[in-house]
Design a protein around this nucleic acid. Structure first.
Length: 603
DNA sequence: GAAGATCCTTACAAAATCAC
DNA sequence: GTGATTTTGTAAGGATCTTC
């Protein structure tokens, strides 16, 4: 900000920084007397530097505006009056001494009585960085500014709004001095950083400095070599997940320095903390009532327009939009225009005409081309209310087109999923039908499956007696039944390899006859969890104890009758374990093979 | 009947638990 | 503490089935 411009802004009568709207009114002599009166009052207040309240520029979700601020050189800064904060003129400023008179002036511009409630004395001042703190009513539906006492804290009994409750976490706005931050930036070599980026070659595309709008500003007469431009950004965030309290920083990013420097030299202009969205506040000419309607679009509040889904919401043209039915309600849509040219583009001249029309209507609630009143940003020098706006990336793109595309994709996926679910249900029905057939067959031929091992061994006995192979366990079983048990027996605690294999084969045959691979692969001998099983899965259930005892008894009987040996029952256990292991391995092998086939099919 | 694929059996190792 | 037991995994080889 140049020293000259800054001084002009600080010490002039304020007319040069009036909004175009007010200047226009001045030119047309519609309200010449009242405006002059206002200017006179405000200028006095500014020179006394008693208030910074008008400097608070609250924006709302994900809005970005471009404005041009004349800069000061390093040298100029030392000659500049060191204000506590940078003063941007506002028609709402008033001194605390002539409160009543100022209230009348404010009411001429904005009928919102809430604006009358704020005075500089209602700020809590900080000794560090000259931060001002403005307390706002914590009530959800009230944006009244709390009057503060001598200690800087809100007094309990408030003239307007609700009484201050010091047991509740307060809502407040921190107003940080922009000028002081800007000085720090310049003291840190800001001018040098600017010179580094002032080498646009006309061909290389960048994020900001190669933009047409930016180049137009830079190449125009309104800027000087030491001019800095800013992007204004604001968005809100919760302090932590599920917190009712959030904070909304209003920040300025200096365009005219390298990207990394932009991130390290951001200007924090104001900070809202509270359990609700930030009020337009006494610093802006937006009514509190309209602010209550604000649900997402800060841009509309701070530029004083309708909401994003309102009529003529496009920031760049006068497309009014069309109402379409959505569900049980309706919504405004902006279909692609088929005519060419489509709709006239917005211009600053048309914007001023709209503001004039509004002033004639004197009805704040009626919007003209979605404009309800002059934007407070118009008070900024060289601020183009139309060109300064950039597309609302968050709401127009992320929550607009992209959201629709994602939803469309999700719907396709959901339809596909429903088809698969239906096919799966048909397969399940088929399986259920086959199971019923199997059950029916079992019932008509009960000898196919035994209900217990004991019952099965009885059936097995009947079958074995019809076989003639002496080496089979079946015949051995028959043999063991017919052998004279009075012969002397040999007690065996270990078996040689040949007999061990024979025992394994006998047990394999018995188990194969009575259980399928699913049952055997899903049971272990004892039901204990495998030491090598690191998963959290439960251990396999134990094999039925009575069945183990039956097999052991049968094997012992067989050995006794076949080989005239009394075997140690513990010799049977490894054979059972080995069989269960083989089925387990086989099942795993099949599953692995199927998985590989599925992978191959999918590829 | 030969060749290949698939399944089963066996041996061995690792790790944890249990009984002594 | 030590050895036995149990469970699981891997690898190798054999048995069985399928195809030609």
């Amino acid at each position: 900000m140049s020293n000259k411009n800054f001084k002009d802004g600080m010490a002039s009568n304020g007319r040069t920084q009036l909004s175009r709207y007010l200047k226009r009114k001045l030119d047309l002599q519609e309200s010449h007397a009242e405006v002059e009166h206002l200017i006179k009052k405000r200028t006095a207040a500014e020179l006394n530097n008693k208030s910074v309240c008008d400097n608070v520029i609250n924006a709302h979700e994900q809005n970005s505006l471009d404005l041009v601020l004349p800069s000061t050189s390093d040298e100029d800064l030392h000659n500049t009056i060191e204000p506590k904060t940078m003063i941007l003129p506002s028609p709402y400023h008033e001194s605390a001494d002539d409160e009543d008179e100022a209230d009348e002036d404010m009411s001429d511009i904005n009928n919102d009585n809430t604006l009358k409630l704020f005075h500089d004395k209602d700020c809590e001042s900080s000794s560090y960085l000259n931060v001002k703190k403005v307390y706002v009513c914590m009530d959800k539906n009230c944006d009244a500014i709390f009057q503060t006492g001598k200690n800087g804290l809100p007094i309990r009994k408030q003239k307007y709004g609700h009484p201050y409750n010091n047991t509740r976490r307060p809502c407040y706005i921190l107003i940080l001095p922009i000028q002081q931050q800007f000085n720090y930036f310049l003291d840190s070599g800001g001018m040098k950083l600017r010179e580094e980026t002032n080498r646009y070659d006309g061909a290389t595309r960048g994020d900001v400095q190669s933009g047409d709008c930016y180049r137009e500003k830079i190449d125009s007469d309104v800027t000087e070599e030491c001019t800095f431009t800013l992007q204004l950004n604001v968005d809100g965030a919760q302090c932590f997940k599920k917190s009712k309290f959030g904070f909304w920083p209003f920040m300025g990013v200096i365009n005219d320095i390298p990207y990394e420097a932009r991130r390290t030299h951001m200007l924090l202009m104001s900070l809202w903390f509270g359990n609700k969205k930030p009020p337009g506040g006494p610093f802006l000419d937006t009514s509190i009532a309209e602010l209550k309607q604000l649900d997402s679009m800060a841009r509309t509040v701070f530029l004083d327009g309708t909401q994003c889904h309102g009529e003529s919401r496009c920031d760049f043209c006068l497309h009014t939009g069309e109402m379409i039915k959505v569900g049980r309600g309706s919504a405004r849509a902006y279909p692609e225009a088929t005519t060419n040219p489509t709709f006239p583009l917005r211009t600053i001249e048309q914007h001023e005409e709209d503001l004039m029309a509004i002033s004639i209507l004197l009805e704040k609630e009626k919007a003209v081309h979605r404009i309800r009143g002059p934007s407070p940003f118009l008070a900024l020098t060289n601020f183009d209310n139309v060109k300064a706006q950039v597309p609302d990336y968050l709401h127009s793109v992320c929550q607009g087109v992209i959201k629709c595309l994602i939803q469309s994709s999700v719907i396709d996926r959901e339809n596909e999923r429903q088809r698969y679910i239906q096919q799966l249900a048909e397969k399940d029905a088929l399986i259920f039908q086959l199971q019923e057939e199997i059950q029916s067959l079992n019932e008509t031929n009960p000898q196919c499956l035994a209900k217990s091992l004991q019952e099965g061994l009885t059936i097995l006995q009947a079958i074995l007696e019809n076989l003639s192979l002496p080496s089979t366990p079946q015949q051995a079983f028959r043999h063991c039944r017919s052998t004279d048990r009075r012969q002397p027996l040999l007690h065996m605690e270990r078996l040689d390899k040949k007999k061990s294999m024979e025992m394994s084969k006998i047990i394999n045959v018995i188990m194969e006859d009575f259980w399928d691979i699913i049952f055997m692969s899903s049971h272990s001998l004892t039901g204990k969890k495998a030491p090598t099983d690191k998963s959290s899965n439960p251990p396999k259930p134990a094999f039925p104890k009575e069945d183990v005892e039956a097999i052991t008894k049968f094997t012992a009987d067989y050995w006794e009758t076949r080989h005239k040996m009394v075997i140690d029952p513990s010799l049977v256990s490894p054979c059972l374990t080995a069989k269960l292991l083989s089925k387990h391995t086989a099942k795993k092998s099949r599953e692995k093979m199927l998985a590989e086939e599925e992978v191959a099919d999918s590829e």
